[in-house]
Amino acid sequence: MLTFRKALIIAAVLITLILFLRSSHSSPSALASSPDAVAYDISQITEEQRPSQDIDSPQQPLKQPPPPPFAPLRERLRYHFAYDLESKFPAYIWQTWKYTPTSLWFGQDLREPEASWTELNPTFVHQVIPDDTLHHLIKYLYGSIPEVFEAFDSLPLPVLKADFFRYLILLARGGIYSDIDTTALKPVVDWLPDGLDLSTVGFVIGIEADPDRPDWQDWYSRRIQFCQWTIQSKPGHPILIDIVSYITEEALRMKKAGILKKGKMDKTIVEFTGPAAWTDAVFRYFNDPEYFNIEPDSTRNITYEDFTNQVEYQKVGDVVVLPITSFSPGVQQMGAQDIDDPMAFVKHDFDGRLCRAVGTHG
């Protein structure tokens, strides 16, 4: 007699067999699909829009064995996100907001700025990552380095996560990050001069502030402050390794002390994830003998004096520093020219209503 217990066992066996047969006959295209599609929707991207890859490039040497789990954080980040200076800048544009542009809740005042990036850069993959996807994307990208994801997931304020996200996505994938309240004024390919060998450039930043007034400390955190609302990078750049390590270590330190909470932290947002922390990381790189030929016992450091009153491009090692006009045109101070200037590339709206998501601090 077929009892209920026997029927249940038979049903379970049949379901298991069906699932096994389905997985065994998965199509080759499904098995070979890009892992990038796991975390965010790129189903609408055409092949010509994807970042180019050299089909005929020589076979890459095998990776070195991975560092042990207890190796220093920076060492593990370098391994998982190797930096190749001679590679191309990935054709990605990353932004983040509460909703995607396909949502009815995406603000009308943001549609024109957001669309400007796609219109001027039609061959780029342009992704606006919504809030409800950030958690899963960072977990996917940094699953092999769990403390990074733990630090991100533990941050108590959306502005902290928005700040941290820009560094994390550029470290892992490279390309352009720009705040949702920015408008592209020129195509990305026109940001750097034609004669510049891009195989010697791995990072592009702009000057945010160059205050020469005596009370500058009342208005800005650093004498020269670098933009973090628009950044271009190749994956794995040492500046990104540094800032990701710094934020991770500080977040976990405060978490352990029980102060990684709103109103309890012993660092301000600006010094923790914002422009002060970012500017410090850039200057640490410029003065790191591991990357620059700094003479022993030399007292010469790269400081704000090397960038104040800058009006043209300046290359420091593999970093191109753009003048204040490039990412801050039309602010009518500190020497910034208007949006029609040849060096004006990105306009930032400084919309205070967007501080929650985009990490602006002023």
Rank of each mutant, 00 (worst) to 15 (best):
A209F: 11
I239N: 04
L31D: 10
P275D: 06
V148F: 08
G352V: 12
G274N: 07
R78C: 05
T16Y: 08
P193L: 06
F283W: 07
S233Q: 03
K88M: 06
F203G: 01
G107I: 03
Q53F: 12
D210S: 15
Q228H: 14
W191M: 14
T200F: 02
S154W: 03
A37Q: 14
P58K: 08
Y285Q: 03
P101N: 08
W117Y: 06
W229P: 00
K315A: 07
M265S: 13
I239A: 09
M334G: 06
V148L: 10
L192S: 07
A115V: 00
D280A: 11
L160V: 01
A11H: 09
T200V: 07
I205Q: 05
T123R: 11
P66C: 03
I239S: 03
T133K: 15
A115P: 00
D41M: 10
M254A: 08
R300A: 13
Q64L: 13
N301A: 12
V38K: 14
D132S: 10
T308Q: 11
I324Y: 02
P211M: 11
R111Y: 04
G330P: 06
D153R: 11
T200Q: 15
S87H: 05
N293Y: 03
E75F: 00
I205M: 11
P289Q: 08
D318N: 15
S29P: 00
A281P: 01
I231F: 00
T230L: 06
